[in-house]
């Protein structure tokens, strides 16, 4: 896993479908691995391949025209199961950014914990990206984490996105939450002495 997040200019893979759940991103039967690697192979498995494991020609990941490190998807991306394998599969496939107008909470956390940036944009801006890519499949998009904006390079259309300052620091520097929590050891032990029961 690439821990630090650097600013990025890339073409995108458009997936204008809403409510994409983590069962689609990585079906349950591929959750049997005991390491974090190799899940990219089965990313969107049942949309990408048919029963005979032949690539489905009409699915965007099988279309040579669309490539890039930015996945752009319809609203409520990553709903359903909490499986972090979904974030691992997206990262392992080579995506660094997922853009949507709305993310499910657990997926957002999982993505950030794996140094994948979820960029939440307005419905309007999302539609603009889809339109731009429909016209020119190689449309380049810039995602700038330091300055928190996303820009369609060809048209200069731009939008600010939010990210918690703590998470931003983690992403830019490659820190993770456990490093921080481990540093709170004294506070945690002190807290425990204030609780008479296990609740």
């Amino acid at each position: 896993m690439d821990k630090k997040f650097a600013n990025l200019v890339s073409s995108v893979v458009p997936l204008p479908i809403e409510n994409i759940d983590t069962d689609q991103i990585i079906p349950a039967r591929f959750l049997k691995a005991t390491t974090r690697e190799g899940f990219g192979e089965n990313l969107f498995r049942d949309w990408r391949f048919d029963e005979n494991n032949e690539p489905k020609a009409d699915f965007v990941l099988n279309n040579e025209t669309y490539k890039g490190r930015i996945l752009v998807a319809g609203k409520n991306f990553g709903c359903g199961s909490s499986r972090e394998h979904a974030a691992w599969a997206i990262g392992d496939f080579g995506f660094k950014v997922v853009v949507s107008s709305f993310f499910a909470d657990i997926f957002k956390n999982n993505a950030l914990n794996n140094f994948i940036l979820p960029v939440q944009v307005s419905e309007d801006f999302l539609a603009k990206i889809f339109r731009a890519v429909e016209k020119v499949p190689t449309t380049a998009i810039e995602v700038n984490l330091e300055e928190q904006f996303i820009e369609i390079k060809a048209t200069g259309e731009k939008e600010h996105f939010d990210i918690n300052p703590y998470k931003k620091t983690c992403l830019l520097n490659g820190y993770d939450d456990i490093d921080y929590l481990l540093s709170l050891r004294n506070e945690i032990e002190a807290y425990e002495t204030t609780r008479p029961f296990n609740f």
């Binding site: 909490s82 499986r83 972090e84 394998h85 974030a87 657990i106 956390n109 999982n110 914990n113 794996n114 918690n164 993770d176 939450d177 456990i178 921080y180 929590l181 481990l182 709170l184 050891r185 945690i188």
Partner: peptide, 19 residues
């Protein structure tokens, strides 16, 4: 529900970082 990185947080510290 939490993801696996968070499972690791809880195992390591009995705490979780959450908004």
């Amino acid at each position: 529900g939490i993801g696996t990185s968070e499972v690791e947080q809880v195992l390591a510290t009995q705490c979780i970082l959450q908004y």
